[in-house]
Design a protein around this nucleic acid. Structure first.
Length: 112
DNA sequence: GGGTTGACTGTTC
DNA sequence: CGAACAGCCAACC
């Protein structure tokens, strides 16, 4: 039963660790969704939990939380504020319009 | 230790 | 297209 409990060593659950790890692989200039992350870690439908994780997660340079948007292309949220998120995304070449990622399906990064 | 909340999503009406 | 519902996982009270 310790197999799934060893995560306590870093304050992060396996769920969170996987999410951060996967999110870390998202190339610059692309975005992914909460649902895709959830599915990538083996918990499809746990998009809400993913959002919760990112919300409490410190903005690490290795963990670009700003590249995570809604499945619909909407920005979603950001601990630093939506403006900051937009700024970062635009700086990477991702166009954002009216709180929504332009041509987001094209920028969408799907894990396989 | 149980109930509520939240950076969500897909289905159904 | 918009509103309602039900799942999901961790944090909070």
């Amino acid at each position: 039963m310790l197999r799934a409990m060893s995560y306590k060593l870093q304050d992060l659950t396996e769920f969170e660790q996987k999410i951060l790890c996967v999110l870390r692989r998202v190339p610059r200039g692309k975005v992914t969704t909460y649902g895709e992350l959830a599915r990538a870690v083996g918990r499809p439908g746990a998009a809400r939990a993913v959002g919760n994780v990112l919300h409490k997660n410190p903005d690490s340079p290795k963990v670009p939380c700003h590249r995570v948007v809604k499945n619909d292309g909407q920005l979603g949220g950001y601990a630093g504020g939506p403006k900051k998120k937009i700024s970062l995304l635009k700086a990477e070449g991702v166009k954002v319009e009216d709180g929504r990622v332009v041509d987001f399906r094209n920028k969408f990064y799907r894990f396989k």
